[in-house]
């Protein structure tokens, strides 16, 4: 029984990790918590639904198309909404991002209503192994989350654009001084993170159901993972995702499962109390 919870926790962590990484990267360059991630993820799920169910594409192709489309939407949200407001304080941008997530969610509501939907995939029996039950979709989720983690690591460590992303997050003025076009780097960051939010929408749609509140329900655990890992630190976000994912599942032992979202919040509260900068994060010098 407890092994089953462990497996559930891993699946949960795998679902949270890619968006937590993306949220952290985005925070690194933009310096405000973007609440619109809920809307982005929901958009990703419904984009994949449209490609898969309405256009009849295979799921894999739909997922790729949804990632591209979400990446574009997220990039566009920067161009239209956030870019003209550079230099505004974090709270202003935060309010704007909440407004944006509501706009996205309700556009989807107008198109698709609040109905619960799923992808067009054959039902497969879950694999049973030593009393543990896991579906093929869940195995895909774990594999993809690992792939995202590795790919992000390679991107940040070994590619020029990845290093430029880290440099821009670290010290945007110096990045400019060294000749880096930070505008382009920021644009790429939005695009890349957008693709990860799109992927999250697909994966969440596989594991849960597709509905307008899909992304919103993931927002708090994602924040919890990112803060736990030290906001702005993508590696910390991976670690944070594992801890939040496990914690959410293991609380089923003591609390009704409907309190899962609350667990994410409790983690945030306790953690910020003890370590205001997160687990791996570095204290920021306050101006």
């Amino acid at each position: 029984m407890n092994m089953q919870l462990f497996v559930n926790g891993i699946v949960n962590a795998a679902l949270i990790a890619p968006p937590a990484i993306a949220f952290s990267l985005l925070f690194g360059v933009m310096r405000f918590p973007n609440f619109a991630i809920g809307g982005y993820i929901t958009a990703g799920a419904f984009a994949a639904y449209a490609f898969n169910v309405q256009l009849g594409l295979p799921l894999l192709a739909s997922a790729v198309a949804a990632m591209a489309l979400t990446g574009f939407i997220v990039w566009l949200s920067d161009i239209i909404v956030f870019k003209p407001m550079r230099g505004h304080g974090p709270v202003t941008l935060l309010v704007v991002s909440i407004a944006l997530t509501l706009i996205l969610e309700h556009i989807i509501r107008i198109i698709y209503s609040a109905e619960v939907r799923g992808f067009d995939i054959p039902l497969q029996r879950p694999v049973k192994f030593a009393g543990i039950r896991i579906t093929y979709e869940q195995m895909d989720i774990i594999a993809l989350a690992l792939a995202v983690a590795v790919a992000t690591h390679l991107l940040l460590r070994f590619t020029n654009i990845g290093k430029a992303m880290r440099a821009t997050a670290d010290n945007p003025v110096l990045a400019e001084v060294r000749g880096i076009n930070t505008g382009l780097v920021i644009g790429f960051t939005w695009l890349f993170c957008g693709a990860l939010f799109g992927l999250t929408g697909v994966l969440a749609g596989l594991d849960l159901v597709i509905e307008p509140l899909l992304g919103w329900n993931l927002t708090i655990p994602i924040f919890a993972a990112a803060i736990l890992g030290g906001i702005g630190s993508p590696y910390g976000a991976m670690l944070g995702a594992v801890m939040v994912g496990m914690a959410e599942e293991l609380t089923v032992l003591v609390l009704p499962s409907s309190y899962k979202v609350g667990v994410g919040f409790m983690i945030i509260a306790v953690l910020l109390l003890a370590r205001p900068h997160g687990l791996l994060g570095q204290p920021e010098i306050r101006k």
């Binding site: 440099a167 670290d170 010290n171 060294r178």
Partner: peptide, 24 residues
């Protein structure tokens, strides 16, 4: 240009800093 303050990328390694120097 070498600024007076905040003139290195603190989160990057020494070599990565130098690579950023060679960006252009």
């Amino acid at each position: 240009f070498v600024p007076q303050e905040a003139n290195v990328f603190r989160q990057l390694t020494v070599t990565e800093n130098l690579q950023m120097g060679a960006w252009t």
